[in-house]
Design a protein around this nucleic acid. Structure first.
Lengths: 220, 220
DNA sequence: GTCTATAATCCGATAGAC
DNA sequence: GTCTATCGGATTATAGAC
């Protein structure tokens, strides 16, 4: 190959997707590439560096998924297609989804490389932009976009995690239905109006923080 | 010790809590116990059996947390204290929380032992009971208790996962505040009333399934 | 740039003596 | 019931020849 690094990374992807993290060793990777293990160290400082590139790759694929449909005309459509892309990515590429949320300990690193942390921040910003758009369009209640997007992110992330761990006892079609129904509940609320008009669970500070919101831009 | 199994398990807990799953080897465990590795095999068939007992232990601790306060007088209080116990457990014992959601692959098992799966089902039933109670009390909108509890479970689980992976950039106090605010949003809904009365995102089948719900018992 | 050879560890699990 | 000794395997990573 003209660019050894790329073919090494391609083989690393293949190995990771088929055998998982534990199955990705420098020896197996070398065998897959067609060289011996020491040769890999010409292009990667070690296993950690390979894993870091895998995480970067996952972020690129993920980014493609959530950004497709970004040219839709309305904020609601842009949000919906981004959310759809999120679940599509998680369901079509569970291992790529997983490696994005492994954390440094699981990856055998001291800390996440800076450029990867930047990609994570870019994702946060992306969702903040979607939420801010929808607030301005009057679709979402006013509020702190970061906190509102956290609520939706946590809900989606939790659903996916539970499904991937096989704790929902359903197949992919059933899961997609569950996601839809559960999202509807999140959007509409689950408390009765009677109870809501009386007194919510906590101190119920939900109205007086409107001025702290609506500030971010719309780029990535 | 009079009961070798128990002291082995105690050491295994200690080792797991300090060094994580990867740090728990039969050799280290033996050293911790004060014997040599082969002696362990008198009491455990192998590493998998030790891990299974760790998962069982985690479930017992977890169960204590979510069931404390179960003698409260109202369904709302019982639910609130159970939810509080859930987050307390996750924050005070992150590694015990984590091992409950590792899945067989991560534990190096073919499948989860039956008795552990039973414990997982008992947890599901516990939350279904809490939700059913609150529906009957008019606190939660009528609906399928399993699906409503899934929405709340996913939200809580996702929040905890994201926090434990350090993706929320906040300390424990800040996280507890985020949890409170995000839960309020989930309870009350995040869409504007205007948009909600028009047409929710999907087909919006939320009213016509009331008769399928409200059937479960109230015991654990 | 790639190889052979190897260092240095670690692992789970077992056989058989005591 | 515990030990010593060991099997058989894995891993990352390096030294030095070619």
């Amino acid at each position: 190959m003209e660019h050894p690094q790329e073919s090494i990374l391609a083989c690393a992807c293949e190995l990771y997707l088929s055998d998982g993290l534990a199955g990705l060793s420098m020896r197996k990777l070398a065998k897959e590439v067609g060289v011996t293990a020491p040769a890999l160290y010409r292009y990667y400082d070690g296993r950690e560096a390979v894993l870091a590139d895998l995480v970067r790759h996952a972020h690129h694929v993920f980014s493609d998924y959530i950004r497709r449909g970004l040219e839709a005309p309305t904020p609601a459509e842009r949000f919906a297609s981004a959310a759809q892309g999120y679940f599509d990515f998680a369901l079509e590429h569970p291992r790529w989804f997983a490696i994005m949320f492994f954390g440094p300990e699981r990856l055998g690193m001291d800390s996440i490389p800076d450029d990867i942390e930047s990609m994570e921040c870019a994702i946060h910003q992306f969702w903040n932009d979607r939420v801010t758009e929808c607030m301005r369009a009057g679709i979402l209640k006013e509020g702190n976009p970061q906190e509102v997007s956290l609520t939706m992110w946590a809900h989606a992330h939790g659903l996916i995690q539970l499904y991937h761990q096989g704790r929902l006892n359903t197949d992919e079609d059933g899961f997609r239905r569950l996601v839809k129904e559960s999202s509807d509940r999140l959007f509409a609320g689950i408390l009765t109006d009677d109870f809501l008009s009386l007194k919510p669970f906590g101190d119920g500070a939900r109205e007086e923080e409107a001025e702290t919101a609506v500030a971010a831009g719309a780029g990535t």
